[in-house]
Computed example of a mutant assay.
Amino acid sequence: MVLASLVPLCFAGWLVWQSMRGDTEDEGSGSPPVKPGPSASGTAGRDGDEQGRPGGEGTGDGDDADGGAREPLAGRTVVLDPGHNPTNRKHPTEINRQVDIGTNKKECDTTGTETNSGYAEAEFTLDLARRVRTELRARGATVRLTQDGDRPWGPCVDERAEIGNEAKADAVVSLHADGAAQGGHGFHVIVPASVRAGGADTSAISAPSRRLGISLAAAFDEVEGARRSNYISAEEGYVTRDDLGGLNLSKVPKVFLECGNMRDAGDAGLFTDAKWRGRAADGIARGIADFLTGKR
């Protein structure tokens, strides 16, 4: 009788023990439970934080721990150099001062050109740089401008190069527009020659700069309305020069983008169109991103 009454009690106890054992097995082999990722406003655990910045190429594929798309340029630094300065013309003494560019000496800066209607290159490049900054930041990049309308003149070409060097930028793009004869139209990219003279030494950055230039030219070529230059012989959309201080003094990959000819009615029509400047900014940002992620 006693034994018969104990059997149901033992069976009930065995069922309780099995239930408890199953709960512990669901957590895995001794590993702590996975905590949900932080919200988008947090910093710990996100791409680009201090503990996990992706520094290599191809970091834009896949998802992060909380299921959001990775920022492909997180951890990368880009310097944008809007050519000239809208108020350079008020400071002729300062901008005409000679500075050393390694191969020789040149003016600190110039006033730039303008369209026939008076839209200044410096206004165009500053607006474009701000738009590109927005596009790159949306991709996770840290972006710095050499000037943001916050200086009365300049900076000088040697300082523009130094800003990129000090930032240890992964890429620097100097934005310009040409002042060629009417009928000449289209863009081209200028990449640094391999130069070793005085304080200039581009031997380490000429090759990556060329890759940046090719990537930028390919992406800009896809911008609606953009076309390659018909007055500059630019293989693959780029030319090589050794006479620009902003390139000669750079220690990081850097190129110039001449977006077109401000004296040409067709190009000028694009430059003065805010919607086109938005499309151009997207193309520039894509070119930079493709270079940094190894897509081109």
Rank of each mutant, 00 (worst) to 15 (best):
S117G: 01
R97N: 06
R144N: 11
A289H: 07
C10S: 15
A217M: 04
D170T: 13
G287S: 01
G198W: 03
M20I: 15
D148R: 11
G179S: 09
E258D: 11
S39D: 00
L145P: 03
L257T: 03
S233A: 12
L15G: 07
A218H: 06
T93E: 10
G75L: 02
P33M: 05
E50M: 15
I232K: 13
D170V: 14
E166A: 15
G269P: 03
R133A: 09
A138H: 07
I190Y: 03
V195W: 03
G102L: 09
D148I: 12
P253E: 09
T115R: 01
E123Q: 08
F271I: 11
G45Y: 00
Q98D: 05
P86D: 00
D81A: 08
D150S: 10
G52Q: 15
D49P: 06
S203Q: 05
D243F: 10
K106Q: 06
A74I: 02
A122H: 00
D273T: 03
R70C: 02
G48S: 14
G68S: 12
G149K: 13
S203M: 05
G186H: 07
V255D: 00
V16L: 15
A167N: 13
P92T: 03
H84Y: 01
V79H: 05
L249H: 04
T111D: 06
G45L: 04
P152G: 08
A44T: 10
L247M: 12
E94H: 02
R296K: 06
E94N: 02
T59P: 08
G149E: 13
E222I: 10
A65V: 09
L73N: 00
D282A: 14
G140A: 08
F11G: 14
I205R: 09
L244M: 15
A289D: 07
G75A: 02
S229V: 13
R227P: 02
F124C: 02
I95Y: 01
L15S: 06
D158V: 04
G213K: 10
N85V: 07
A181N: 04
G245F: 12
S206T: 14
D81P: 06
S39C: 01
E162C: 08
P192T: 13
R228Q: 11
T125P: 07
Y238N: 13
L15C: 09
R263S: 15
E71F: 00
A69D: 01
A138W: 01
L145Q: 04
K254M: 12
A226V: 07
G154I: 11
D290F: 04
P8T: 04
R139M: 07
K106H: 06
R70P: 03
G55N: 15
D158L: 03
G246K: 04
